[in-house]
């Protein structure tokens, strides 16, 4: 029986479209991730608050600065956690090594020899080996984002649904799938074991590993979708607080 972590051997139908030049995909990655990083820097370094009514931007949650009475660059105390979680993510590593480092620019390209390449054996890139620790921290942030998502449905006049409520809820859902489809989490729940049934029946860790493996196959999809949802939720709240738009209440 095929296991969920395998691809099927069935061939996908061939597209009649001519393949794109090899530099198109890394270029698209560079543009999207580059714009996202610039937007994030603008958001974190040029704003002290990400709150509008009962909406809290994912860049500013949890409010660590407020806990300790620090009121300068509130987002900076938190934003590094999801940033390092994504930076050390096995999926994003593929994307940025191809897009920004051109190591490799494509699977077909032959580049000039660069004997100084050291992969992830040396610092600072060796920090990617600590992905699990950024997962632990990202998990804590995720708990607060769920609190924010629930809070977004409770306005001054009671329960309601606004566009912001839905954006924060979708964001929490997508981030949950992204976090729990992580390769490091897959290792933690069962991948580190060699034997799933040595006591004669499938263990709980096998069931967890199997479930995470099925989510893990779409880890890249969750990665991009959650990046977009964080961006959308934050931008919506920023535009509200700037007075550019007004919140649309569905009821």
């Amino acid at each position: 029986m095929a296991q969920p972590l395998e691809t099927t051997s069935a061939q996908k139908p061939k597209s009649s479209a001519k393949p794109k030049p090899y530099w198109v995909e890394p270029l698209i990655t560079m543009v999207i991730l580059g714009v996202w990083v610039l937007y994030s820097l603008w958001e974190v370094f040029f704003h002290n608050s990400g709150t509008y009514g009962n909406y809290i931007s994912p860049y500013f949650s949890p409010g660590v600065g407020k806990w300790f009475g620090w009121h300068l660059l509130d987002g900076l105390y938190v934003a590094w956690v999801p940033f390092l979680f994504r930076f050390s993510c096995y999926y994003y590593r593929k994307e940025y090594y191809r897009g920004f480092f051109w190591d490799p620019p494509s699977c077909a390209a032959v580049d000039k020899p660069r004997p100084r390449y050291s992969g992830e054996t040396k610092w600072p890139l060796a920090i990617n080996n600590l992905h699990r620790y950024f997962w632990y921290l990202a998990f804590i942030v995720l708990v607060f984002l769920w609190k924010d998502a629930v809070q977004a449905f409770f306005f001054k006049n009671g329960f309601g649904v606004g566009i912001g409520s839905l954006l924060l809820l979708i964001n929490a859902v997508l981030l949950t799938f992204y976090t729990f489809s992580c390769h490091a989490f897959r290792h933690m729940v069962g991948g580190r074991k060699d034997c799933f049934s040595c006591d004669g029946k499938p263990t709980t860790s096998y069931k967890l590993w199997n479930r995470v493996s099925s989510w893990n196959m779409f880890h890249g999809t969750w990665a991009w979708a959650s990046l977009a949802s964080v961006w959308a939720a934050d931008l919506y709240i920023r535009l509200l607080s700037m007075g550019v738009i007004h919140d649309v209440r569905l009821f």
Binding site: E6, T8, Y97, G119, T121
Partner: peptide, 21 residues
Amino acid sequence: NMCNVTKCCTEVCPQHIRITD
């Protein structure tokens, strides 16, 4: 750790083995 998980090996594998993942 010389491998930086860029998945070209998985993309070209004719046996569809998910080598990287």
